[in-house]
């Protein structure tokens, strides 16, 4: 049987769901925008990039981190729908269908990835407001980095969402893991000025490489001290691959709630 059909079908369902929940569309886009404007404007007077050119203000520095936050939120919302699918009973129908478990994972994660990626790309269009005018190469790189980042974060969220029984439980994961991941990704502040223990965490944080690669693509002047593009893409790709494998492992280990 053609395994592509169920994958595409499950992916499309994610997109349809998103479009039929206008509140989700609005909140996913509005929260990072508000964060960016408030933080960006508020810190603009006091922030100065360590070792960087003085013309890089905080609105510009914070922009890649805002895009990363948007992708993170999108990944959280779309993987949380696995919990709803389980409770609403839809999941049991998928699990009883002749679809390999990995294909179900692929459909669900691909749907969430596309949503996160599209939202990120739309937000990129606001870059000129932050004084960011990337060249064509930079813009294309940013679009590519966003796709990898969305894939990794959605796959990570799925691995947790599959195993918790309630959206409340998932909020715990979000507050204890996903939000701190973002706080320590170089989104808010550069690693250069942080204590050594924090720098170690930031270096081990996959999201750091997503933000670094975005920053290199969009405003190279603000990214001098961060990891390079090659290393970042490699780290992001490896992270996404590990998370996807983890998804298939957890789904096989716990096919459905007993």
């Amino acid at each position: 049987m053609n395994v592509l059909l169920p994958i595409v079908s499950l992916t499309r369902r994610e997109l349809v769901h998103f479009l039929r929940q206008p509140s989700r569309v609005a909140s996913a886009a509005a929260t990072p925008l508000v964060f960016w404007l408030f933080f960006g404007s508020g810190f603009s007077g006091s922030f100065r990039l360590p070792g960087g050119p003085p013309e890089v203000d905080y609105l510009e520095y914070f922009f890649p981190g805002t895009v990363a936050l948007l992708v993170l939120f999108s990944a959280i919302f779309s993987t949380m729908s696995v919990i709803d699918d389980r409770h609403a009973g839809f999941l049991q129908g998928v699990l009883a269908a002749p679809v390999p478990r990995w294909a179900m994972v692929a459909g669900k994660v691909l749907g969430g990835t596309i949503l996160g990626w599209l939202q990120g790309v739309v937000f990129l269009a606001l870059a000129p407001l932050a004084g960011i005018r990337p060249d064509l190469g930079g813009a294309l790189l940013a679009v590519g980095v966003l796709a990898l980042l969305a894939l990794g974060m959605t796959a990570l969220g799925f691995a947790f969402a599959w195993q918790v029984d309630s959206t409340q439980g998932f909020h715990g994961v979000m507050n204890l893991l996903l939000i701190p991941m973002w706080l320590l990704s170089g989104s808010l502040f550069p690693a250069a000025g942080a204590p050594a223990w924090m720098r170690a965490i930031m270096a081990a944080n996959p999201l750091t490489y997503g933000v670094a690669a975005l920053r290199r693509a969009l405003s190279p002047a603000a990214a001098q001290a961060g990891p390079g593009v090659g290393v970042s893409l490699l780290a992001l790709g490896a992270f996404a691959a590990v998370c996807l494998v983890a998804d298939v492992v957890v789904v096989r280990a716990r096919p459905s709630k007993a």
Partner: peptide, 14 residues
């Protein structure tokens, strides 16, 4: 197999 579950398995949004 065709499976009819006791609990609903429909997608309410569709």
């Amino acid at each position: 197999l065709g499976v009819v579950f006791q609990a609903p398995s429909l997608d309410a949004n569709l």
